[in-house]
Design a binder for these strands. Structure first.
Lengths: 186, 186
DNA sequence: ACCTGAACACCGTTCAAGT
DNA sequence: ACCTGAACACCGTTCAAGT
C-alpha cells in the first residue's frame, strides 16, 4: 500500500522534526559517526540534499540535537525553581542537585550525544535558560557577584563528570563537594 | 639538493615521531578535522598508508597525541609532588593548583587537541601517572578512602573547565572552591 | 620481504538539469 | 519555482602489484 518510492510527486518531503528524529535514532544506534547526513536522508527515504532544506551544514544538525535534549531539562528546571521559590523552599543545594541529576540522566539516555553537547558552545536557547536558572538559584543563595561564577562551576562539573563517565555514586559525591565549596565563605 | 621525491629508493621512510610531529602541526594549524591521515602522510611526503606502519587506525594516532601532551605534565607533576613531600611542604591545595594550572596551560597551547583529550579514556601511561600523583596528594591530605574520589573530582573539574573554555580567573576561582569542598569534612 | 599507491566504500556539500 | 540526484572534492582503510 506504500506509495512508489521513486516518484517525487507521491513522496512527501520530510519534516524538520522527522529529520531530527532520524538523526537521534542513528545517534543512539551507532554513535556520533553513524549520524551521517547521507544516512539521515536515507532514513527518511530522501536524497542527501533534503537535510539542507532545514540545516545549512552538519554542525547545525548537531546544534539542533543538543537544543532538543536540553529543552526538556530546561523546562523541568523552570518548574523546579519556581516550586522552590514559592513553596516550603528546600535548601538551594538540593534544587541544584535535582537539576544536575536530571541533566545527567537525560544525557546518559543518549550516550552518542555526549560528544555533541561537549562540543557545543551552549549558546542555544535551552542552554541559556538553564544557565539563567542556575544563576537565579545562586543569587538567592546570597552569592551576590559570585552567582555567575558559581553557576558556571556547576555546569563545568556536571559536563566534566559526564565526559569522564562518572558513575552515579561518584557523581553525587563530587557534586556535593562542589556545592559545599561554593557555599563556604572563601 | 633534495632527493627526487618519487624514487622510493632515495626516499627515507618517516619516523613515528615525525608522523606525530606532522599530526600535531596540522592539529594546531587547522583543528581536529585538519589532522587527517592523508594530510599527515602528505606532510611527511609519503603515501597515506605509511601512517599504518605505526598506527593501526586513526584513533591510535589520537591516543598517541594525547599521550604525548600529557607526558610533559606528568613529568612535571612527579617533580612537584616529590618536592612537596621532601621539602618545606606547602599545603596540598597549592600543589594541586600548580598541577591543574600546568595541565590547563599545556592543553591551551594546543586547542585543537582539547577534543581529543576529552574523547580519550585517559587510560594511557601518562594519564594514569597523573591520576596516581593526585591520589597520593589526596591520601597525604588525610582523605583516606575518599582520596580516589577526590582525585577524580579534580580531574573532572579541570577537563570540564577546559571543555567550556573557562578563562584563567574563572578557572582559579572554581578550582579553589573545588579544593575547599574536598577539604571540608562533609 | 617490503612498501607503495591505486582502489574501495564511504563522507559533506553543491548545483545543473529536469519537473 | 522547486526539488532532485549526479557530481565534486574529499575521507579512512586495504591489498594487489611491483621492487
Amino acid at each position: 500500500v506504500a506509495a512508489p518510492p521513486h516518484n517525487p510527486r507521491t513522496r512527501r518531503a520530510p519534516t524538520e522534526a522527522e529529520v531530527l528524529d532520524a538523526a537521534l535514532a542513528l545517534l543512539d544506534a551507532g554513535g556520533p559517526e553513524a549520524a551521517t547526513i547521507r544516512r539521515i536522508a536515507a532514513a527518511v527515504d530522501a536524497a542527501p540534499s533534503v537535510v539542507y532544506t532545514y540545516f545549512p551544514e552538519q554542525a547545525a544538525v548537531h546544534r539542533a540535537l543538543v537544543e532538543r535534549l536540553l529543552a526538556e531539562v530546561a523546562e523541568g528546571a523552570a518548574a523546579d525553581v519556581s516550586d522552590h521559590r514559592a513553596g516550603g523552599a528546600p535548601h538551594w543545594p538540593h534544587v541544584v542537585e535535582v537539576l544536575a541529576l536530571r541533566l545527567r540522566e537525560r544525557l546518559l539516555a543518549h550516550p552518542g550525544a555526549v560528544a555533541l553537547v561537549l562540543g557545543d558552545d551552549l549558546s542555544g536557547p535551552s542552554a541559556r535558560a538553564l544557565g539563567r536558572r542556575l544563576c537565579e538559584l545562586m543569587a538567592d543563595a546570597g552569592l551576590g557577584a559570585d552567582a555567575r561564577r558559581g553557576s558556571f562551576l556547576i555546569t563545568t562539573y556536571v559536563l566534566g563528570a559526564i565526559a569522564l563517565s562518572a558513575d552515579a555514586e561518584q557523581f553525587r559525591w563530587g557534586l556535593r563537594r562542589v556545592l559545599g565549596g561554593i557555599g563556604t565563605r572563601n
